[in-house]
Design a protein around this nucleic acid. Structure first.
Lengths: 160, 160
DNA sequence: TAATACTCGGATAGATATTGTCCGAATCAA
DNA sequence: TTGATTCGGACAATATCTATCCGAGTATTA
């Protein structure tokens, strides 16, 4: 079970956008983070479709967070990138084979499905606890005080 | 992020093996559960490599659990099938690009990696809480009292 | 007002991981 | 000793993820 690599880029972008006050193009975010511009664009599209960002077209366009950073959780970003698929899908093995259980006895999920679902819930709950604002605060505390403002300035500055 | 489908089969096999007292061939476990025999063999090999099962070759061979069911957790099975890879790998984006953080300031994992790791821990903790014995008990309670013994008899019986 | 340069968006190839299959080596029972 | 039966690792097919391209649309700017 591996998480898509795009999640990491997407989260970094969200944090960076909290330092900018205007729209930031995808190409600029890609350069800031040293990642593939064309591929990052795909992730940002997903965040836009999920309603976490608003895209502005045209000459000085780009992406802007639609909500305050405190109202965007890490789970929101993960689900936007990964899609709505659950981590575990029960194929009802108990209803197959020569000793299959009768459908009447299978109205509730089997214990294996319940166990996997509970673990999935714990995982999502942990991700929901943390907001983009929390990430921003931690980044601010772990680096020089002018680190985030410098990112904001760099994002705002025109290309050379 | 999707869990390998083989995990479901592997867990069902572990529960079934608690009802059998001797070695059970992979082909028989596959028939019981109505899944591909050749593919299930792959999962059982992984469980064997992980030390959860012991394989017996030869005419009346098969697979046997090496430990009591109470000492095998669902997490053991999941990690045996999925491999030891972590769900999230940090590529140190903070150290890339024009405003890269200095390596000196990056001795500890970044807040994004910490968040993902914490969620991963919560997921694994939930899976570690449940043992194969727990699964067996739940299955026994949710079906007729003779369901598990019948599985044991069927596994033991010679092929027609 | 019209041209223009810059933006996103979806459709399109390549790489990687997962799923599914096969046959040979080893083993135990007869 | 024979022989049937088992596991084990090597081999394709498929699905998913990664990476890329070019066209549609829009605010700027002359």
């Amino acid at each position: 079970m591996r998480l898509s690599g795009g999640v990491e880029s997407a989260l970094h972008c969200c944090v960076a956008l909290t330092a900018a006050d205007g729209p930031v193009p995808a190409a600029r975010l890609a350069e800031l983070h040293g990642v593939s511009a064309t591929y990052l664009a795909k992730q940002l599209q997903a965040l836009s479709r999920a309603g976490l960002m608003h895209s502005v077209q045209g000459k000085s366009g780009g992406y802007v967070l639609t909500r305050p950073p405190a109202e965007i959780t890490v789970l929101d970003v993960v689900e936007a990138i990964e899609g709505p698929r659950p981590t575990f899908v029960c194929t009802e093995i108990r209803q197959r084979g020569p000793l299959a259980a009768s459908p009447d006895a299978c109205t509730t999920p089997c214990v294996i499905a319940r166990t996997m679902t509970a673990a999935d819930r714990a995982w999502r709950a942990a991700l929901r606890e943390v907001s983009i604002a929390d990430l921003r605060t931690a980044v601010g505390e772990e680096h020089d005080a002018d680190a985030l403002p410098r990112i904001g300035d760099w994002l705002r500055a025109p290309l050379p």
